[in-house]
Amino acid sequence: MALACGRLGGGGGAGVSKLLQLIFGDLRNVTSVAVALLAAYGVSRLVPGAAGAALALLLIGAAALQAI
């Protein structure tokens, strides 16, 4: 909504940037997901059965850090 109303005019570059942010979020979001996935993938090489739990815990931790 804010995106739609905030641009009665608006450049294409800014529009693309906002669209990318709409899809992927900010750098912190991308980093959180990348780190969580890489770490969980690492765990899966050692203890495959624990990798899923590790991913969920890491994502919950990332959400806590971003939210608080």
Binding site: L37, S44, P48, G49, A51, G52, A56
Partner: peptide
């Protein structure tokens, strides 16, 4: 996302028994 992301990377049956 968790189920497919990790499952696709590391093998679904191995990580999600």
């Amino acid at each position: 996302g968790s189920f497919w992301g990790l499952g696709g990377l590391a093998g679904e049956q191995a990580v999600w028994p």
